[in-house]
Amino acid sequence: MSISLSSHVLDTTLGKPAAGMQLLLTTYDGTKIEGLTDTDGRCNQWQDFKFEAGEYCLRFYTKDYLLAHHKEAFYPFVDVHFELIEDGGHYHVPLLISPYGFSSYRGS
């Protein structure tokens, strides 16, 4: 079974996907891969990186998005650290944001 990763960013204040947000994935071996949320706030394009077990960090650059949509941004970015396990299948890392709060969890 292979390992795959996706993310979804939702703006909880507007009740809409957060389109056009920059992401940076740092992989278990230190590789850095840039991403961008699509019009539905989703990102699953990681430059054909082959995921393996290990610790990863997904940085969401929230400041520009929040300033553009809310004119306020307490968090310039949000880092979510997580661990993928061998044969773990698909991993989904959602982020729920507002100008003064955020939440993440392992989705499906």
Results as ranks from 00 to 15, higher is better:
22 Q>A: 12
22 Q>N: 13
23 L>F: 09
23 L>T: 04
24 L>M: 15
24 L>F: 11
24 L>I: 05
25 L>H: 03
26 T>G: 05
26 T>F: 01
28 Y>N: 14
28 Y>L: 10
28 Y>S: 14
28 Y>E: 15
28 Y>I: 08
29 D>I: 06
29 D>G: 01
29 D>A: 00
30 G>Y: 00
30 G>I: 08
30 G>P: 11
30 G>F: 02
30 G>V: 09
30 G>M: 04
31 T>N: 04
31 T>R: 03
31 T>L: 01
31 T>E: 01
31 T>H: 00
32 K>L: 11
32 K>N: 12
32 K>C: 13
33 I>Q: 04
33 I>E: 01
33 I>N: 00
33 I>L: 15
34 E>T: 13
35 G>D: 10
35 G>P: 03
35 G>V: 12
36 L>H: 03
37 T>H: 13
37 T>V: 06
38 D>C: 08
38 D>G: 04
39 T>A: 15
39 T>Q: 15
40 D>N: 12
40 D>I: 05
40 D>A: 10
41 G>D: 11
42 R>D: 15
42 R>E: 15
42 R>A: 15
43 C>V: 02
44 N>T: 14
44 N>V: 13
44 N>R: 12
44 N>K: 12
44 N>Y: 12
45 Q>C: 09
46 W>H: 10
46 W>R: 09
46 W>P: 13
47 Q>R: 15
47 Q>H: 14
48 D>Y: 11
48 D>W: 03
48 D>Q: 15
49 F>W: 13
49 F>V: 06
49 F>K: 07
50 K>F: 00
50 K>P: 04
50 K>N: 08
51 F>S: 02
52 E>T: 14
52 E>S: 09
53 A>N: 06
54 G>K: 09
54 G>L: 08
55 E>G: 12
56 Y>N: 09
56 Y>M: 06
58 L>M: 13
58 L>A: 06
58 L>S: 03
59 R>D: 04
59 R>Y: 00
60 F>D: 02
61 Y>C: 08
61 Y>G: 04
61 Y>P: 00
62 T>S: 08
62 T>C: 01
63 K>M: 07
63 K>L: 09
64 D>V: 07
64 D>N: 12
65 Y>L: 03
65 Y>H: 09
65 Y>V: 01
65 Y>I: 01
65 Y>D: 11
66 L>M: 15
66 L>K: 03
68 A>R: 06
70 H>A: 13
70 H>R: 10
71 K>P: 07
72 E>G: 03
72 E>T: 09
72 E>W: 11
73 A>W: 09
73 A>Y: 09
73 A>L: 06
73 A>G: 05
73 A>P: 01
74 F>D: 08
75 Y>M: 03
75 Y>Q: 02
75 Y>P: 01
77 F>P: 02
77 F>H: 14
78 V>C: 08
78 V>A: 10
78 V>D: 05
78 V>S: 10
79 D>K: 07
79 D>E: 12
80 V>N: 14
80 V>E: 14
81 H>R: 12
81 H>F: 07
81 H>W: 14
81 H>Y: 13
81 H>G: 05
82 F>R: 05
82 F>G: 07
82 F>I: 06
83 E>W: 01
83 E>H: 14
84 L>M: 15
84 L>K: 06
85 I>A: 12
86 E>Q: 10
86 E>W: 04
86 E>H: 08
86 E>V: 07
86 E>L: 05
87 D>N: 12
87 D>Y: 10
87 D>C: 07
88 G>L: 07
88 G>T: 00
88 G>I: 02
